[in-house]
Design a protein around this nucleic acid. Structure first.
Lengths: 351, 351
DNA sequence: TTGAAAGCGGTACCAG
DNA sequence: CTGGTACCGCTTTCAA
């Protein structure tokens, strides 16, 4: 309806000048403006429901207290966007707001999205992806403080700090969990090579075996894909028509949807989970891992923490509260994954 | 690094005034500025990589060509992100950009998020939710053109246009699909009462039965919840230990995750899908319905279309290209759901 | 203690 | 056809 009140409106109403309004409302009233005037100003502002025009502020101050978040597809994809949630938590608590633009996996849109954000004076930029992956850092990101979340610059001299999950350790600890339960024959449905995370999780699987001095059977590792049907097919391959003695006692999956496929296969084959077969997921996907039957033991991705850490790094850089004398600090932050133990894993069956 | 070029820089470089630069770059050069100057200006702009400062533009024009999207949780949850994708499609094609803020289901944050957006001069607002639901329209939304996507104002005199899926028809057509396959005993796992969509889908189920003159057996309808475990338990209740004659030949689910639970139960009970039991989902969740084993027949929610329709309505209102003489038009747009036939449904078994 | 004025980067009007 | 200038809303410096 009617336009918003401006500082001038407040000034008029309080019978003072615009400068006084500005001073008082920014907490620099004491020592500059008479107590009485201050009260009148504050009251007038209250009555007019005044809040300063952020556009004018940005233009004047050359900074906007806005952080632009560029997402490859975390908004439109079916995966949870807690990285953005975590980032936003931190930003709000420090008086910044975040605006998100999603390119729907069309990297050709990166540059123009960033240009748009830059034209709007964002004070910093964050690039966030679904799933760990290397990216080509858009040029514009180097013009303001920027950070990468769940992705990284693979060039020899990376310019930007990135925050990623520790997938190797995640893969290792998931495997260790199974090893500790007595499993010695663990199949691995490892996703597919197009992902950066897959080989790292496989590495963790190998590391755990090496540490336990158990040889890895290479034919137990399958690059299968990431979806339910891939999990189903993978499980059928190692389980269907195979004698109990030759069967793996556990199947470790590179994500929870693969685990759903495995559970489907097990049910169809009459195998009980976890008595006959343990199933391990990865990701802790909301509404999947926790509600499966049986519920999935899984390695939770620390999405929220990644978002929080990335935003903290970014804001520290922007506000110069870097703390450490050496401004460079490290270029990488690794956040540990977290084992979530539920019902789908249990002691290895005795043979 | 170094700051961006301004119109003044361009003017200097081209040896003209700022006004000339403005005119030329906005296509109003002809008839106002000499051809030669125009060329020089354009070239200078090119060389300096000039693009106007959007902040200054907004301040001057009192409009920003930005649409604010307020999300209850579509960003952080794995659901319904395509509404935003569809909205953004339309916005970009019409020269607007969208910025998204997510309140993570904390409605107390609505007002401040909208205030933030308003302070930044957004030209319009869109409220988008995960799942159909009534909302309390935040006050600020009435200050600029606004629209609701996947949600609605349940007050007697709704002020805002809303775009929602046609759930009743969706429920009816899903049921009809099953009826046409010869099923006469169809169990319904209907979600839970806390959702607006659930009763509508049930209504569709009833309508289809009524049209086919087949009585509804009330004890076949279960308000079960929305998750995998609920689907599993619901299916076990109607299938486990029940003689084939007393068993439903199909189970219709109010979403795809329920259907996953049903499939799990069927597999455990040794029932083949769809030979012994047909399973119908709802939503067509990406990476779930299409990759299930067997893949799920489901009623697809027209998320992208909802986003597109909502944004189209909004931009029409903003640009005044409303077309229709009567500015009010209707307050509601219903978008049809779409049946996606896959492998989980088939002819009813003959008994 | 207060108010006047400059300027952030544009656009648009109006003399020249 | 061109350049000067006012103004969008706010902060900040500087004189009074």
């Amino acid at each position: 309806m009617n336009r918003k009140a401006t500082a001038l409106d407040v000034a008029k109403k309080a019978g003072v000048s615009r400068s006084a309004v500005s001073l008082v409302l920014n907490g620099r009233g004491d020592g500059n403006v008479a107590k009485e005037s201050q009260d009148r100003i504050r009251q007038a502002a209250e009555e007019l429901n005044y809040s300063p025009n952020a556009i004018a502020l940005s233009l004047r101050n050359q900074r906007s207290r806005v952080i632009g978040i560029l997402s490859d597809e975390v908004v439109v994809s079916p995966f949870d966007g807690n990285i953005i949630g975590g980032a936003d938590d931190v930003a709000r608590s420090r008086g910044f707001v975040t605006v998100v633009m999603d390119t729907e996996r069309d990297t050709a849109r990166d540059a123009s999205a960033i240009e748009t954000l830059l034209d709007r004076q964002v004070d910093g930029l964050m690039y966030v992806t679904v799933g760990l992956k290397p990216i080509e850092v858009p040029h514009g990101m180097l013009r303001v403080p920027s950070v990468l979340a769940n992705c990284y610059d693979e060039h020899p001299q990376p310019q930007l700090h990135h925050v990623i999950p520790d997938e190797v350790t995640g893969g290792r600890e998931a495997t260790e969990h199974l090893l500790e339960l007595g499993h010695r024959d663990i199949a691995l449905l490892a996703g597919s090579e197009d992902s950066s995370a897959a080989p790292l999780r496989v590495q963790g699987y190998r590391d755990a075996h090496a540490a336990a001095r158990i040889p890895v059977q290479e034919d137990r590792i399958f690059m299968a894909g990431w979806d339910i049907d891939a999990g189903f097919r993978g499980a059928m391959k190692v389980l269907d028509g195979v004698s109990p003695a030759d069967r793996p006692t556990a199947i470790m999956c590179a994500n929870d949807r693969l685990a759903v496929g495995v559970a489907l296969a097990a049910a169809r084959l009459g195998l009980r989970v976890p008595e006959d077969l343990s199933i391990m997921g990865y990701d802790d996907e909301t509404r999947i891992a926790d509600t499966m039957v049986p519920s999935l033991t899984t390695m939770a991705l620390p999405l929220r923490e990644i978002g929080r850490a990335a935003m903290t790094t970014l804001l520290d850089a922007i506000e110069g509260t870097d703390g450490s004398g050496t401004s460079g600090s490290s270029v990488e932050t690794m956040v540990p994954c977290r084992l979530v133990t539920r019902e789908s894993t249990g002691p290895a069956p005795t043979r």
